[in-house]
């Protein structure tokens, strides 16, 4: 089930979608507990929005990241890390790094409820045909964690952002 055109303006529809997804997950969990069916792995929620949903419970999170200037600094360090990491360098060295950084700032700002609107491609389109492995994806997470640590972002706040980003693996990692 794909939702390519699910933009952030359509919050209500998105919430309904999320809730449906959650109840499906809970039903599946209850079923898995009683029946123990391995096949249910396939039914775990499968979203494909342009980016992850905005975290709306509280306003501190965006401040924890230093607002937009903080995100800009994090992305500079993040890109440095990605280019220094032999696992991620092949993807980012030939790319328009300034554009990627700007899009990441926009995307993270939106997720962190910083009032931005992500204007980039959805994750599936942006990564189509790149052959990103699960290992590449984790390498990127590590490089992001290091950049956030360097910028003294509280670890718990880092994890809230990463939890929002993690489901993007479905659109980024090729099976």
């Amino acid at each position: 089930m794909r939702h390519e055109n699910l933009f952030m303006g359509d919050q209500i529809m998105y919430r309904i979608y999320r809730r449906t997804n959650l109840s499906v997950s809970l039903a599946a969990l209850a079923f898995a507990c009683t029946a123990g069916l391995p096949a249910l792995a396939q039914t775990a929620g499968a979203t494909s929005a342009p980016t992850a949903p905005t975290i709306t419970d509280g306003t501190r999170l965006f401040e924890d990241f230093g607002g937009k200037p903080g995100l800009v600094k994090i992305m500079d360090d993040f890109m440095d890390n990605l280019l220094a990491d032999s696992r991620t360098k092949p993807f980012f060295a030939p790319a328009d790094q300034a554009h990627i950084k700007a899009m990441l700032v926009e995307q993270f700002c939106q997720i962190l409820n910083g009032g931005c609107v992500y204007s980039g491609k959805d994750m599936a389109t942006a990564h189509a045909g790149m052959g990103v492995t699960e290992g590449d994806f984790y390498a990127l997470v590590e490089d992001l964690q290091k950049a956030m640590n360097k910028n003294h972002i509280p670890f718990a706040s880092q994890n809230r952002l990463l939890a929002a980003l993690a489901p993007q693996h479905r659109d980024i990692v090729e099976k």
Partner: peptide, 16 residues
């Protein structure tokens, strides 16, 4: 047999 404890952060299904 099921799930991914780390990546599936929008799902309640555990890794089993």
């Amino acid at each position: 047999v099921l799930g991914d404890a780390i990546l599936e952060q929008d799902s309640w299904i555990p890794q089993v």
